[in-house]
Simulated assay, not measured.
Amino acid sequence: MGTKRLREDDGEGKKPSLIRNKERRSEAFAQLKREKKKAKKLRIKARDAREKECIELGEAPPPRKTPRTIENTREPDETIVRPDDDELLADIATDEFAEHFNRDKSPKLLITTCRKCSKRTFKLILELQSVIPNTEYYKRNKRSLKQLVKDATEQDFTAIVVIHENRREPDGMVIVNLPEGPTAHFRLSNLVLRKEIKARESDSPSFSINHGRPTSHLPELILNNFTTSLGHRIGRWMFASLFYQDPNFRGRRVVTFHNQRDYIFFRHHRYVFEPKETKQKGEQKKKTAVIARLQECGPRFTLKLLSLQHGTFDTKHGEYEWVHKPDMDTSRRRFFL
């Protein structure tokens, strides 16, 4: 019986996916990728030349196309509000956090853990105490969360932060606003403690890029991209109520809650302004510009909202304002915060 010879396809004029030979298919894919990259460079060069020509002629350059992303193509949401919305301003004046934003009550936090706390969770609590001012740690022991809420209310605490863990790794956070609520439950992930923040290369010997050590100054607070009514309630009304309203700018500390695709990224930095000499093409003299450098102080983690409950913590008779369900994740362009 004679051997059957397979006809090799040279692949000329065909799509790479139709080429049967693996090596030739890989070569065709690589060649196609190089051609696309070269064409993109030519388009960018032509665009820059047109913009430069328009500027020299004193005309307005043609507008650039906005790239399509998941954020700018999100599904329409009726709950998106503006900062100057009359209904939003009325809610702010009468909600549970009005006393805090009117500076009638100073924040006082109680932070605790689940009943069995690992060493890593305790390190996270110590770092959170250095980030959030006026925070006290209480050992949980065998007390239930309802009893803890009652005791904290009697001692004039304004909020309770509970860190949960699974397999010796923190995986949840519960924030209970006192004395009337609400209660928010988050999933905690991607935790990086202060000493775990790796160093990166820097061209400035005067400013270290290793993890920083926070001072006792009151930090600034940045809440980014909380656009819906639920986002305002979580961002401005839940997170902002944990911090003082009068930051000490001399300390150069910044705490950031950045919402992107319903994931809340927590970062803690300190910044410094320093001069840097720059030299452009065709210029002999160097120009001195003031730039800002950031140094991360830690910790670093990500939060995902699971539920928002009216009042204080109550799993049996509590009324939930919002609960995350699996069928909510059917669309990648649907966001709630």
Rank of each mutant, 00 (worst) to 15 (best):
R250T: 13
K285P: 05
Y263D: 14
A289V: 10
E277H: 06
F265D: 07
V272T: 14
K281Q: 15
R261G: 06
E283G: 05
F273T: 12
R261A: 08
G282M: 11
Y271K: 07
K287I: 00
G251C: 05
D262G: 03
P275F: 07
E283D: 11
G282R: 12
R253M: 03
I264H: 02
A292P: 04
Q284G: 13
I291Y: 09
L294E: 10
K286C: 00
K287Q: 06
A292D: 08
K286H: 00
V255K: 01
R252Q: 13
F273E: 15
L294M: 05
A289K: 15
Y263I: 09
D262R: 04
F257A: 01
T288P: 02
Q280I: 12
K281L: 14
T278G: 07
G282K: 13
Y263F: 08
K287G: 00
E277R: 10
V290T: 09
Q280F: 15
H269N: 05
I264M: 02
R250L: 12
K286T: 06
T278A: 14
T288L: 06
R270E: 13
F266L: 03
H269A: 03
Y271H: 09
R253V: 01
R253K: 09
H269S: 07
K287E: 09
V272Y: 07
Y271S: 12
K287F: 00
E274A: 11
I264Q: 01
F265V: 05
R293Q: 08
P275A: 11
Y271T: 12
V290H: 02
F266S: 03
Q284V: 03
V254F: 04
I264R: 02
Y271D: 05
K279V: 07
A289W: 04
F266N: 02
P275K: 12
F257Q: 01
V272W: 04
D262S: 06
Y263K: 13
N259L: 04
I291H: 09
A289T: 10
K279E: 11
V254W: 02
D262H: 06
E283Q: 13
P275Y: 08
R253W: 03
K286F: 00
K287L: 02
G251K: 03
K285E: 14
K281I: 14
K279M: 11
E277L: 09
R267H: 10
R261C: 07
Y263C: 12
R261K: 15
F273V: 10
R261L: 05
F257D: 02
R250C: 07
F273Q: 15
H268N: 08
